[in-house]
């Protein structure tokens, strides 16, 4: 019986299929909001589902000169990394499906698997857009990863736990957005960098390098990467909401908080001009990382004086 429940948890609800569905819904909401900000109509609710169904049904073209095994396996790794990460996060306000001490670090690295796979996928092909896109993807990974990690470690430091579930419980009566506002902003913007959303979409800047690392992908591979991104969006939003917006106690809590965050993300996407990759890196290292470290200093000093 237990195995059956575990199986259902992982494959159907709240992990697996349901998570993919929610990921697509959040992607739709994001697109719709950006469209509305731009005075457009935007896609209808089933558009991401239709996109992915179509892509999954289509033939996957194997470009010349790629390593075929790598080409097929990278999207799978990307998606499975994201889905595995979901197990340690309080998705939809439920308790994490499984947890262990230090799962926060594991989750963050599972999430990076997607970016890493995309970078490798780009580097795997001979296409010049892919190569430039892959360079930029990895360059961006190196720049946002540290500030993003530091921003998520802030609440962990106070909660004195490296376990997402415990931090979530602790955060319920401590709104870290009030005590660590810089960390909140950096975490949110780090999430945008991670998902390559505008203005941090230099790795897939369509006016320069078409679709970046994804240029040569079609059919199933592309669909899996897309789904992975959708899942990562949901996980990222849940993490930030759980850590900084007073935790996730129940599904309603989850929906309200993450949708609010998504609205903020969408408005940033609409209002900002794309940054060049050198500007992105400069921004992260010069401001993002330094600000988070400064906040650390303040937190440690305050903690020290209180304790």
């Amino acid at each position: 019986m237990n195995t059956l429940v575990a199986f259902l948890t992982m494959v159907i609800f709240p992990g697996g299929l349901f998570l993919l569905f929610v990921g697509m819904m959040y992607e739709w909401l994001d697109r719709k909001l950006v469209a509305r900000f731009q005075n457009r109509i935007g896609p209808r609710w089933f558009q991401p589902i239709a996109d992915n169904v179509k892509l999954l049904a289509k033939e996957e073209v194997l470009p010349e000169g790629v390593h075929p095994q790598l080409f097929y396996v990278l999207p799978v790794i990307a998606l499975s990394g994201a889905l595995t990460a979901a197990l340690y996060v309080p998705m939809f306000g439920f308790e994490p499906a499984t947890s262990f001490n230090g799962d926060l670090i594991a989750t963050i690295y599972l999430l990076s698997l997607l970016t890493l796979s995309m970078g490798l996928a780009g580097a795997n092909t001979l296409d010049r857009y892919s190569l430039v896109g892959a360079t930029r993807t990895l360059t961006q990974l190196f720049s946002y990863e540290a500030p993003f990690l530091l921003a998520l470690l802030g609440p962990a430091l106070i909660a004195e736990s490296w376990q997402i579930g415990e931090i979530n419980d602790y955060a319920r009566d401590h709104w870290f957005i009030l005590t660590q506002p810089i960390g909140f902003v950096v975490a949110l913007i780090g999430l945008m960098g991670k998902l390559e959303l505008p203005p941090f979409d230099a790795p897939e800047a369509e006016t320069e390098i078409v679709a970046g690392a994804m240029t040569e992908y079609s059919g199933r591979g592309l669909a899996l990467f897309h789904l992975g991104k959708g899942v990562e969006l949901v996980i990222g939003l849940s993490l930030v909401a759980a850590f900084y917006l007073g935790g996730l106690a129940n599904p309603i809590d989850f929906v309200v908080k993450t949708v609010l965050l998504l609205g903020f993300l969408a408005s940033v996407q609409a209002l900002m001009t794309r940054l060049r990759i050198d500007q992105t890196v400069g921004l992260w290292w010069r401001y993002g990382a330094l600000l988070v470290l400064t906040q650390y200093l303040v937190v440690i000093i305050v903690e020290g004086t209180i304790a």
Binding site: F37, Q38, N39, R40, P198, P199, D201, A205, T207, A270, L271, M272, T273, R274
Partner: peptide
């Protein structure tokens, strides 16, 4: 020009 810079907001509004 705004679109090339990745500033689609200005693109959409000026075209509107």
């Amino acid at each position: 020009a705004a679109h090339e810079a990745g500033f689609d907001m200005l693109f959409m509004y000026s075209w509107r």
